[in-house]
């Protein structure tokens, strides 16, 4: 079984407000509500691709109930720890006229030491029948910054591969522990080990450095519609053009889901990267998060430009 860990899930609320500006009072022309958090998104997209996962992490209050309910209706296995407080809501205000997106992110509920201990005992129990652990997103208040290290260490002890998609201090700490896959979001990380991630050459240098720390697959976003991949077979760039793109929201998770499916089906590295990128593109073609189905992803494969950099 694949386990996804979302320590700080959210409800993503997307409000469409034409000509939005601060200080005004607006009627919302459309609102879209969906459960969020990287691990949960990966679980939902993998389900659309026909891959079973178990989602775990912390949930709280009414928002937590909502997230659980959506996962339950999607028939995804859950093992969340319900805590005091309220699962956060992330608000996105999309102005289709001015093409501006405004975002507001909450911190999330406070997690006590007891709750962390209880989570760890659930995690260790589920690891006994896990083939891959996907760790993603920010950490809620109370959870130590190096918590991903501990989760990676526990998985490694059982020789279970791990994938991390995070940013900032939690990601840097996790990289030291050597996860199998790491996705670095360059938008939230301007430098790595003193290298500014502002050019392709610098980005290649940074992913190679991460790779040399024992991370088998390093994925770093490059410009808006591309990713650089560093594997033991070489460094690759895959991109698509912006034609028809509505929202990149959730595309990072679609890429991860595609790569996981490709791994399960033992695709060649190139095919795996292209399939993952096609999933990311399919996700971006509509406002709704997630992909339509596998056939829709496969239709996007011809649009992916793939090249070997090194």
């Amino acid at each position: 079984m694949i386990v996804t860990v979302t320590l700080n899930p959210a409800i993503d609320e997307e409000y469409v407000v034409p000509e939005f500006r601060p200080g005004g009072w607006f009627r919302v022309s459309r609102v879209q509500r969906s459960p969020g958090g990287k691990g949960i998104n990966v679980s939902l997209i993998l389900k659309q691709l026909g891959v079973e996962t178990a989602a775990m992490g912390f949930l709280a209050g009414f928002s937590g109930e909502y997230v659980r309910d959506v996962l339950r209706k999607a028939q995804i296995t859950t093992n969340f720890l319900h805590v005091r407080g309220e699962t956060r809501t992330n608000v996105y205000i999309v102005d289709e006229v001015g093409k501006v997106e405004t975002g507001l992110a909450e911190l999330g509920p406070y997690i006590s030491e007891d709750e962390i201990a209880r989570f760890l005992s659930n995690y260790e129990r589920i690891l006994k029948r896990t083939e891959l652990v996907v760790l993603g997103g920010s950490l809620p208040p109370g959870v130590p910054q190096d918590f991903y290290c501990e989760l990676i260490r526990l998985a490694k002890q059982r020789e279970i591969p791990t994938l991390i998609d995070a940013a900032g201090a939690p990601l840097l700490a996790a990289l030291d522990e050597g996860p199998t896959y790491a996705k670095v979001d360059q938008r939230f990380m301007a430098t790595y080990e003193g290298v500014a991630l502002n050019s392709l050459d610098n980005l290649i240098e940074a992913v190679q450095r991460v790779h040399s720390h024992g991370v088998e697959w390093v994925i770093a976003s490059y410009r808006t519609y591309g990713n650089v991949f560093c594997t033991h077979e070489g460094v690759f760039l895959a991109e698509f053009d912006r034609k028809g793109i509505v929202s990149m929201f959730g595309s990072g998770e679609a890429l991860i889901a595609g790569l996981i499916l490709g791994g399960q089906e033992r695709m060649e590295t190139k095919d795996r990267i292209v399939f993952g990128m096609a999933a990311a593109l399919e996700n971006a073609l509509h406002v709704e998060k997630g992909i339509r189905d596998r056939a829709a992803v496969e239709r996007q494969i011809p649009r992916i430009r793939f090249e070997r950099l090194l």
């Binding site: 178990a54 659980r68 339950r72 028939q75 995804i76 296995t77 859950t78 093992n79 969340f80 659930n122």
Partner: peptide, 12 residues
């Protein structure tokens, strides 16, 4: 399996 709640919350 079509009606069940796939939740693993349990006690030890």
């Amino acid at each position: 399996c079509e009606v069940m709640d796939r939740d693993l919350t349990a006690l030890s």
